[in-house]
Design a protein around this nucleic acid. Structure first.
Length: 427
RNA sequence: GGGGGGAUACCAGAGCGGUCAAAUGGGACGGACUGUAAAUCCGUUGCUUCGGCUACGAAGGUUCGAAUCCUUCUCCCCCCA
């Protein structure tokens, strides 16, 4: 199936420049997507863009992943209501390295003619002087044109204004496209729908500067059906880096997808074909409580991002934590096995001696450990019936726990709400 | 340069001398219901040794008492030039 068709039936495609599809149907073409180095890891939001590149490569085209060493220094105003803080160069370098190593996991860098390639726009911007830039690039694009962009208009009409630096952003990104077009024969830039304006500045620059043809394609912004932002949980962003978001948490994130969203996500984030997805949906509709879609979705993505072994562990942990197994089950496990199950769960270490005299629930959870940031909050939530120790709800804030509470003389399991587990290790 | 308006908790936004740790809405978190879903309903949403303490842009002042009045400063918005 051709690339554009693939994106279309998956519901990924948002906008496409006329002529793009014809061009891609003619044979192998090169295209790219830029990734912003605002953090040292990509998050699930970027995963959608990665999938686009994967589809692109699977359709026989050559994908470039661009990391924005230069654009990251400027800051994209698209979708932002306020001026962005600039990243320092060291932070940027660190972030670039992290992102680069993650991207390498998803694309095939060794598939002959259409091998993926990684580029960093810092390479062609670092020696590009300001004067040369305004003469070679700035000259071709009018301010009128730049002002017409939504990202600029919104900011100019808003309260916060916009610095010259951010105003320049679209030119900098536009030049990226020009550079890749010129030197790598890259004829297509892809990105989220918020990138349309920036991408088109690139095609425009190519047209005006060299009378060249280049194309644009954008993908749907991912939204949750309830309108809230995709990729966030109580704990913050969901990252691809296992140090930042444990594979268990990662798996849980996808498993907790709502029914409505699961149907769109399975098309966006997995490579299952249409028939497979339809079959999964039929199953889901017949027995929604089994959450067939969520499980398939979570499994596929977790394996692709963290590997089979981590997925197995996440499953094991999930089954224990959310299954019907009672606490006695843990007594039959070794310390190492218990730690394994709780691997992705936040843990705290306390002195065993803190328990010998007995300790009340609030002190245990807010003073000895940081399950709660303050005693007041711990107390409130205990009163609200939202906290459990060893799967038994804490009745009152004054309830006292001691050595006997320990499982295997070493562990205490804390639940905050239904889904948030903590492990306390007493040593 | 002249004139006017504003800054309140995560956000929006009321309060304009005591009854204000601050209405209301949203968000977030928790509970019930369920399927670790959605919707709905309910609760919580500054810290605390539960005596208090710190808070309404910042610093001073008036007052028995200030988010509320006065002075200075910082920042933002609007109109005129």
């Amino acid at each position: 199936m051709n690339f554009v068709e693939e994106l279309r039936w998956r519901g990924i495609l948002h906008d496409i420049m006329p002529g793009t599809e014809e061009l891609l149907n003619k044979g192998m073409a090169a295209g790219y997507i830029g990734f912003d180095p605002t953090a040292d890891s990509l998050h699930v939001g970027s995963l959608a863009q990665i999938m686009t590149l994967i589809h692109f490569q699977r359709a026989g085209h050559k994908p470039y992943a661009l990391v924005g060493g230069a654009t990251g220094m400027v800051g994209d105003p698209s979708g932002k209501s306020a001026e962005r803080n600039l990243l320092s160069e060291e932070v940027l370098q660190h972030n670039l390295a992290g992102i680069q190593s993650q991207l390498e996991k998803f694309l095939d860098f060794n598939s002959g003619a259409n091998s993926a390639e990684m580029v960093n726009n810092y390479d062609w911007f670092k020696d590009f002087s300001f004067l040369n830039f305004i003469r070679d690039v700035g000259k071709h694009i009018t301010v009128n044109y730049m002002m017409a962009k939504d990202s600029v208009k919104n900011r100019i009409n808003g309260d916060t204004g916009m610095s010259f630096t951010e105003f320049t952003y679209q030119l900098v990104q536009g030049y990226d496209f020009y550079y890749l077009w010129k030197h790598k024969n890259c004829v297509l830039q892809m990105g989220g729908s918020d990138q349309w304006g920036n991408i088109v500045t690139g095609t425009e620059l190519i047209r005006r500067k060299d009378a060249g043809e280049a194309y644009a394609l954008t993908t749907q912004l991912i939204k949750k059906s309830d309108g809230s932002k995709f990729g966030k949980t109580e704990g913050g962003n969901i990252w691809l880096d296992p140090q930042k978001t444990s594979p268990y948490k990662f798996y849980q994130f996808w498993l907790n997808t709502s029914d409505a969203d699961a149907k769109t996500y399975i098309r966006i984030f997995t490579l299952f074909d249409e028939a497979t997805i339809n079959a999964l949906e039929t199953e889901q509709d017949a027995a929604p409580h089994l959450r067939t879609l969520q499980k398939a979705l979570a499994k596929d993505i977790t394996i692709r991002v963290h590997g089979e072994a981590e997925y197995e562990k996440a499953i094991k942990s999930s089954e224990f934590l959310f299954g019907n197994s009672d606490i006695a089950f843990l007594n039959e496990l070794s310390d190492a096995e218990i730690i394994g199950i709780f691997e992705g769960v936040p843990n705290f270490t306390i002195e065993k001696s803190a328990l010998t005299a007995g300790i009340n629930a609030v002190d245990l959870l807010a003073a000895q450990t940081a399950v709660f940031p303050s005693k007041g909050e711990a107390k409130k939530m205990i009163q609200g019936g939202g906290v459990a120790i060893n799967k038994a709800k804490i009745g009152a804030a004054e309830d006292v726990y001691n050595i006997d509470t320990l499982i295997n003389e070493k562990f205490i399991i804390v639940q905050k709400g239904k889904r948030n587990y903590f492990l306390i290790i007493a040593e």
